[in-house]
Each structure stands twice: as structure tokens, then as C-alpha cells.
Design a protein around this nucleic acid. Structure first.
Lengths: 192, 192
DNA sequence: GCATTACTTTAATGACTATTCAAGAAAAAT
DNA sequence: ATTTTTCTTGAATAGTCATTAAAGTAATGC
């Protein structure tokens, strides 16, 4: 039929995801992307539409690669699943020098209030995540790891998701890592 | 000496604070400010320096007007102080149609990772807030409202601040208000 | 080999950005 | 009343923004 692309679409999307994640939507210009992805502007427009389309594709790419839900689903012990999610999160936040936080929560702050489509996407992902927490909590209850004072597992799930998101935001300005450890410790004290 | 200003500096600063709070730094142009504050660009530059200076002044203006710390300090019962902070927060989030969240957390996400000066300012404010929580928790402990399983009050303070910030972010995409109520309820179950 | 088709490259577009220049206007000090 | 100082006004500047137009290039199907 015709000429083939000279660049790998998925590789470029990964790079775009990373750049948007780190700099946000307004903080990223097409020229920035051209420089960091090594692809000319016109190629981006041919391949993805416009800046907003590429951003949405990046968001979807991000959630597709996220490991929170799979971790919650795959670990047999419900309590251990949740503990592992928070432990992994703390490790990520400590390791990454560049305070990227969570792409989803970043976008909640930057775009959701003025972009209903993005707000809806984020809300859907949140409920998906809350459901995964809920099912891990169900398992934990069966396994005897939920104290009696907690009867509403869905509320617990929402609470865990909220704490997780808060951590990624708080991490952006925290210099002493023990702050994040304290938060995680108390958050998980629902199991005590 | 000379001519006097035709506009009220504090009134203009309040409007600027509100606009930056709602739209963020990059989402606010000088032209936007000129239109919404009713002050010409040159007057802004004369009075505040540049856009960044005005933004910093707005941030400081915001924390000066925040009621969280004073609520924590003024309520006699430590537990009731903390409960009231969260109740007020839920009321605010439910009332405000325009999902502004918390200016401080918004700025954490948008600017802190690439602006050390702003990151430092936010971190200072966070520790100030955590200290206020801590002192309320101290009172609560004396008043017998802290269960024995919680020994580290500073960790609890950090946890409460984190949950508070998370709520303001989560609120941006939440359509069902019971989500926020659930989160607050479980967050405050540390007292149960 | 040749036409077709899609990709790449370069340059241009027009709108918007923060900031400043220069001139006019008003209030206070003398 | 005049000078001085600061404010206001309107226009200009230089740069960046997302997007597209146009021309060149390479691979495929025939």
C-alpha cells in the first residue's frame, strides 16, 4: 500500500505518557514532545490527532500499565494485598527522584474541574480501583483480618483509595520520607 | 507625594487568589486576571511585580485566610476540633459547585515538583498544619478520646493531614457525595 | 518501472503569552 | 500654581503556543 512509520507507536506513547505525567497537560508543549520523543510534530498529529487526543491516549496507557489493581487481585491474602500496594507505593515514591506522583490524581487536579470528559474517565477508574480494594477487603474479612468495628467494607475501600492518592500528592513536597511511612502505617491500622 | 491607587489592593489580591485557586498557575493568563480583577496589566505589574509574584502573594493570602488551624486550636475538645475540621471540609466541598479543592494541594501537584521555592513553602505549611493536628490530638489523648492502639500522635497528625488533602483531590471527580462522607467516616474511626 | 499512498520534513500560520514602553492624568508637596 | 511623583491607559514587543500547508521521500501493489 504505502510507506511505513519510522517510529514505534507504543514506544512513543510510553514516552509521551512519561512526559505528560511529569509535566502535566499545560506544562507540556508540542515542541517539548517533539524534542523528547524524537518525532516531528506532523507525525504526532498524523498518528494521534491533536495534543488533547495524545494526552487522553497517554492517560489510558497509564492506567493500562498500572499495577495497583492486579496486585490487589493477585495476592491471595486480602490484607497482604493491600499492605503490598502501599509498600510498593512507598518504594516508588522513595525511588523516583522526580516527584511525578500519580498521573491520575495529577490530572484530577489540573484538568478534571474544567473538563467533564476527563473527570468522567477519572471517576470510572476510581470506582474500578475502589472495587478492587473492596474485593481484597472481602477476602480479608473472610480471613479474619478485619476488626469488628469496621462493618462497611465499601467505605473502607474508598478510604484506602483516598489515602493512596493523598500519599502521591503529599510526596511531592515531602523531604523526610518518614512522613509517608507514618501515613501509610496509620492508614493500614484499620487492620489492627 | 503623588497620585493614589484607584483599586483596593487586598480586594484585588482576594480576586487573584480565587482565580489562581480555580484555574491554577498555567491556566491563568495575565489577560484573564485583567478581565476578572478589573485592573489593567501595568497596574498589576506595578503593584505585585510579575505573574509569579502575584501567584506567591495569592498563596500566602490563601493560607492566611484558611480556617483549619484556627479551628483545631480554638475548639476545646481535641476530638471535636478534628471532627469539625472534616465536617467543615465536607460542607465546603458539597457547597462549592466549582471543584476548586485546596489551593495548597493543587499547587503541590502543578508547581512543587519543578519549583523548589514553592515546594518549600508548601512543606512549611504542611508541617504547621500537622503541628496543629498534633496538639489537638494531645488534647484528645488527655481527654481519653484516643484508643490505646494509637501510640504515635505525630503519625496520626500526618495521617489526618494526608486524608484531608486526599479528600480535596478526590472531590474533584466525585459525583456521589457519599463517597466523601465514607472517607471522612473511616478516617475519623481512629477515635473508635 | 510506475502509480499510489502514507510518512517525513520544513515552513508558515494566526492566536496567545508575559512583559514593557511611552504618553497622559491625577494627587500631593512645595 | 507649578513641580514632582505615582498611577493609569493603550499600544507595542518578542516569544511561544497548537495546528496545518506544502513539498519531498520512501515503500508497497500493480
Amino acid at each position: 500500500m504505502s510507506r511505513r512509520k519510522e517510529f514505534d507507536m507504543t514506544e512513543v506513547l510510553d514516552k509521551a505518557t512519561d512526559y505528560f505525567w511529569q509535566h502535566g497537560y499545560e506544562g507540556t508543549s508540542i515542541q517539548d514532545l517533539v524534542q523528547h520523543l524524537g518525532v516531528k510534530a506532523q507525525s504526532l498529529y498524523n498518528a494521534y490527532g491533536g495534543k488533547r487526543d495524545l494526552f487522553l491516549a497517554s492517560l489510558r496507557n497509564y492506567v493500562r500499565q498500572s499495577t495497583v489493581i492486579s496486585t490487589l487481585e493477585q495476592t491471595a491474602s486480602g490484607k497482604e494485598a493491600i499492605v503490598k500496594v502501599f509498600r510498593d507505593l512507598l518504594d516508588d515514591l522513595a525511588r523516583s527522584e522526580c516527584k511525578k506522583g500519580c498521573f491520575m490524581f495529577n490530572t484530577s487536579v489540573e484538568l478534571a474541574p474544567h473538563d467533564p470528559e476527563i473527570a468522567e474517565f477519572i471517576e470510572k477508574e476510581r470506582t474500578r480501583s475502589e472495587l478492587a480494594y473492596y474485593q481484597a477487603l472481602l477476602r480479608a474479612k473472610e480471613q479474619g483480618d478485619i476488626p469488628k468495628r469496621h462493618s462497611d467494607l465499601m467505605a473502607l475501600a474508598r478510604y484506602l483509595h483516598n489515602a493512596q492518592g493523598g500519599l502521591t500528592v503529599t510526596a511531592k513536597t515531602v523531604s523526610d520520607p518518614s512522613v509517608l511511612e507514618d501515613i501509610a502505617k496509620v492508614t493500614l491500622s484499620i487492620f489492627d
